[in-house]
Design a protein around this nucleic acid. Sequence first.
DNA 1: CAAACATATGAGACGGAAAT
DNA 2: ATTTCCGTCTCATATGTTTG
Length: 247
Amino acid sequence: MQGNLVLKLGFSPSHIQLSLRQRLLPLCAQQKCAAHKQSFYDKLNVPAKPKKPMSPFFMFMAQIRPTLNKEYPDKKITELVKIGAERWTNVDSKLRDKLTQQYKEEVINYNKLKTEYESKLSPEDKEKIKRAELHSLDLKEQRKTKQKSKELGKPKRPLTAFMKYLTSRVSERNKYTEHKEWIKSVSQEWKTLNPQVKAKLETESKQDFESWNHELKKWEEKMIKEGNVDVVRSSSLPPLSKTKLKQ
DNA sequence: CAAACATATGAGACGGAAAT
DNA sequence: ATTTCCGTCTCATATGTTTG
């Protein structure tokens, strides 16, 4: 929906897009809103888990947020939370007790809803959720490893001959409205490209791959020495020692 | 993990080739 | 069979902050 709007406007500076989205969509439809994090369940087409109640501090924050926003219009949210935390430490004990009491009641209700939810959930849905959660953890792990590899300076895989050609045609990108079209066109060119030009790119790529292979092996050896085994391809790892297997 | 949300980073889509 | 490499754009998620 917001995508169409951007298309109609013909430009898409990210900040404008953001503000448009924020203005056009109801609060709960904004994916940033944790209350709508149920998108996880939506995608699985499975009933959403009941949400944990807000802690007394969170309820307090929700109360004073409008005031804080007015008082400190230029402060970041994270700053406002800090200010809120300060006020919370010496908040009127009556309010504190009231919110704490409310929280306790909501926790009781939440626990009830939770057990009810878990008992109502079909075994198939339970399986679905478990699988999705595991997959989600997997993705998280992948992201972490990728990030770590980047930080540790893992040599990048070189460009294939085709990729080299693709990048050499970046200047043509502006001739196409759709990115896909550009790629399609370049891949057409690639099929009928001058064999000599193609061969040159292929030899270059081949050499790149050779030196990359060498660099990568060197890097992986270093990583093993430094104990960063998780960023090393399993094929580059020494075979499992028998002692370890026995133990 | 509940809330707020601006801002930063990441991933999917799309092509083909080639390493794993 | 799957992943990676490049480009761009779009959409998704992580980050920063706090308490219970």
